[in-house]
Write a protein that binds this DNA or RNA. Structure first.
Length: 414
RNA sequence: GCGGGUGUAGCUCAAUUGGUUAGAGCGCCGGAUUGUGAUUCCGGAGGUUGCGGGUUCAAGUCCCGUCACUCGCCCCA
């Protein structure tokens, strides 16, 4: 075994894994395209401020998981830990608020310094969609519908569960915060260390605690929905009605809280239990305050991100590689013809594989190994007559074809 | 960041209580077949047992450290 290992939490995508990855990314892109969304790509690194300001100073992502470094010009930059902040920044940088609403999707690598586990890597990939400039709840519904359609297309939706909650608007949050703090303060001596910390910094997160005792306390806590403003309640009702109309099943989870600070109103999470501890497959919500927080014009936004590697684990089978046509030349003259012939076929979009050495047996063996559909056999006899042998590797059937009619004979295997 | 498990050939796995030359299947390479693959038969290569240290007459096996993976926590996609 080689002593050379990839950096912890990173891995190579060799052809089989790569095809699974591609299937997920392409399927997501196609689903988004069907809703009128267009692909964008923002830089893999940004000024650290872009993430620090937006994700919230107390979030784990910012406090301990970012890959931050100083570049040679003395700038502090960060490998992006998520995609939304970059898109929001791009909207501001590019003056795109003139063109709202914006419907974008993206796919690319993200970086988080975490302890690796199955479904949790330090370099991982996310696909995501962002809908900017739409403040109506119909936007939330559409965005969720894209996610569901995407998961349906990769064959995972029927094994997943959609959980939904509302974080309300600023007024609701303010009111609830007070009530929750005073309730939790009554249990100060019983709460876990983590929860006590959160109580100071971000009390809503206490609701999310996995600590058994915390959960008991939280179970009797005042419910956020009771403190929502009428506007926030109406908004959430419309989102639910929209999902109902589309026949998208969901479960309300009043304790669902997003980790990143920029969310408001709708938040949701789609999980797939078979993945174990890292079972969140797609998650997001509304982030109306984000662009304003970054110094841009107040702009509504909703979106989600989905883990490509996690989704790839849900694929029932590995997509098959496209099958090439192998050219098997015999002798030097044939070798020359083979190169020319390969070029001719490739210009017409055939997938053509040329081995570079070996006798006929070896080349046929290789043709079989690369899963070729057919082998074009070029020997002196055939060449002299302007012909080639065409062997179909599945059936073993072999026939003679005129060289200038090869394209027609191969038409079924393009 | 915390706790548990695992690490033997390219892959999946064997190897009595510590015991002599670390095995098998698959894969790979070669041959049977220098103009026919996938099937069959024969042969071959491939290992510092993750790495480093320790205990012992003797370590793949026990101990410590380290790295990686893995399960859970945490966090999240």
């Amino acid at each position: 075994m080689s002593g050379l290992q990839p950096v912890r939490g990173t891995h190579d995508l060799l052809p089989d894994d790569m095809r699974r990855f591609r299937r997920v990314a392409d399927t997501c892109g196609r689903a988004a395209l069907c809703f009128g969304y267009q692909e964008v790509a923002t830089p893999i690194f940004e000024f650290t401020e872009v993430f620090k300001r937006t994700l919230g100073d107390t979030s784990d992502v910012v406090t301990k998981e970012m890959y931050t470094f100083t570049d040679k010009g003395g700038e502090t930059v960060t490998l992006r830990p998520e995609g939304t902040a970059g898109v929001a920044r791009a909207l501001i940088s590019g003056g795109l608020s003139q063109h709202l609403p914006l419907k974008y999707f993206y796919v690319g690598p993200m970086f988080r310094y975490e302890r690796p586990q199955k479904g949790r890597l330090r370099q991982f990939h996310q696909t995501g969609v962002e809908l900017l400039g739409v403040k109506e709840p119909a936007g939330d519904v559409e965005v969720i519908a894209i996610g569901v359609e995407f998961l349906r297309r990769i064959g995972a939706w029927d094994r997943c569960e959609l959980e939904l909650n509302t974080l309300g608007d600023a007024a609701s949050r303010q009111a609830y915060r007070q009530v929750l703090i005073s309730y939790l303060n009554g249990f100060r001596d019983q709460l876990s260390k983590e929860s006590l910390e959160r109580l100071e910094k971000n009390p809503l997160r206490v609701l999310d605690s996995k600590d058994e005792n915390d959960q008991k306390i939280v179970a009797n806590a005042p419910i956020y929905t009771d403190y929502l403003t009428p506007e926030a309640t109406a908004f959430f009702a419309e989102v639910k009605a929209g999902l109902d109309a589309l026949g998208i099943a969901y479960r309300i989870n009043p304790r669902l809280v997003r980790g990143l600070d920029y969310y408001c109103h709708t938040c949701f999470e789609i999980t797939c239990p078979e993945l174990g501890a890292q079972k969140t497959v797609l998650a997001g919500g509304r982030y109306d305050g984000l662009v304003g927080l970054m110094g841009g014009p107040e702009t509504a936004g909703v979106g989600w991100a989905s883990g490509v590697e996690r989704c790839a684990m849900l694929l029932a089978e590995t997509p098959r590689a496209p099958r090439p046509i192998a050219i098997v030349p015999l002798g030097e003259a044939a070798e020359h013809t083979a190169t020319i012939l390969a070029g001719r076929l490739r210009r017409q979009d055939f997938i053509v594989d040329l081995g570079f050495s070996g006798n006929m047996g070896k080349r046929m063996k290789r043709a079989n190994k690369i899963d070729a559909v057919a082998a074009v056999i070029l020997g002196d006899d055939e060449l002299a007559r302007g012909e080639a042998g065409l062997k179909l590797l599945d059936s073993g059937e072999q026939k003679t074809v005129r060289l200038d009619e090869l394209e027609a004979a191969l038409a079924a295997y393009r």
